[in-house]
Simulated assay, not measured.
Amino acid sequence: MKRANIFLTVTALQTDATQAVNSKTQFAQIEDYKIAYRSVGKGEPFILCSRFRGNLDDWDPAFLDALATKYQVITFNYKGLASSTGAPHSNILGFAKDVVDLADVLGFKKIIVGGWSLGGWVAQIVTTEFSERILHTILIGTKPPGKVEYPLEEIFINTAYKPDYTIEDETILFFEPKSKISSEAAIQSHERITERKEKDPKVKPELWEFYGKCHDDYANDPYNSRQKIMSTNIPILVISAHHEVCFPPENWFELNNKLPTTQLIIIPQAGHGPHHQYPKMVADYIDNFIQNIKYDG
């Protein structure tokens, strides 16, 4: 595949070691468009791919700060979405290429790649199509490539496409409404996220169709990624929840004994965003996995 011409930004990479809520939005120039990103912490580079409709503000800063004690954590907006410029991608490979292009601009030869929900699809395509760049893959609240047996729940669709989310909507989408523990965590996470003063633009509704194109491409799996993760030697960690309204963990169960490097954690009384409910615990799971399961390549 032809590589893009990439130019280093004039401004040096800035990092904030402790406060994701105060991290500055920066821009990586890639050909004739810019990828918006933020960086927090120091250490091995760890690029996180965002969810459907997610922008730079939609990561819980407590989760980013917990990871940033050990890693340089990069969050970003896909091309053409939120504060990134250019035309949005129409396939999952384009979304994945944003990760590699950003890594190139920032001077990262190898990275840890992570993704939440739709971002987990992106992270898996980065892993299978740019495997030489990946040390570890971290997947949160997502599904494997190709067709899956267990669909998302109707309540997720009915809620996910609302123009604006209330705390009640966020609880349905990312937590477990039946659990008092999870419902209280939803309020706390919401409050942490809204502390941020510098706001990122939301993804415009007229651009949501590009996520649908990304989904269809991922489900059709023209890259044979499902088979590729069955033979990879890159360590993969999947973190899910007992009540996943979007991507039930049962879709991973059917691949038991077929994924040689994948480990699965399921968190009780939690939903689609376990890292927002338990930011430090999930960050600790991730760090323990990275430190103890090494790439054999």
Rank of each mutant, 00 (worst) to 15 (best):
V238T: 10
P205M: 03
K180G: 04
F210A: 04
K178I: 00
W252T: 10
I181G: 00
E209Y: 13
P249I: 01
S183Q: 11
L255E: 02
S225W: 02
A241E: 09
E250C: 00
S182H: 04
H242K: 14
A186P: 10
P248V: 07
I239S: 00
E184H: 07
I181V: 11
Q188R: 12
F210K: 00
V203A: 00
Q188F: 09
H243R: 13
E191C: 06
T194M: 13
A219L: 10
A186Y: 06
D200G: 06
E209F: 08
K180C: 03
K180I: 12
K178W: 04
E206D: 15
Q188N: 12
F174V: 08
I234D: 04
S189R: 07
D216Y: 10
H215W: 13
W252V: 11
D221T: 05
S240H: 01
L207I: 03
I234F: 04
A241P: 15
D200H: 05
E184R: 10
K202Q: 08
R226Q: 14
W252F: 15
R196W: 01
A219Q: 07
P222V: 02
F175E: 02
K213Q: 15
E198L: 11
Y223W: 15
Y223E: 08
Y211R: 04
L255T: 01
E254I: 15
P177E: 09
S231K: 14
C246I: 10
Q227S: 11
F253I: 11
E206A: 00
L237C: 03
S225Q: 02
Q227T: 04
S225K: 03
W208G: 09
C246K: 15
P205W: 01
H215D: 14
F210R: 02
V203N: 02
L237H: 02
D216S: 13
I239H: 00
M230K: 13
N233K: 15
Q227K: 13
K204F: 04
K213L: 15
T232S: 11
E244I: 03
S182A: 09
S183A: 12
H243I: 13
T232Q: 05
W252Q: 05
A186N: 08
T232W: 09
S225G: 04
A185I: 00
L237Q: 06
G212F: 08
K199Y: 01
S231R: 12
S189W: 07
S231T: 15
E209H: 12
D221H: 06
I236G: 01
E195I: 04
V203F: 01
K202Y: 11
S240E: 12
I193A: 05
I181R: 10
N220C: 08
R226S: 12
I229R: 00
D221L: 11
E195L: 15
D217R: 03
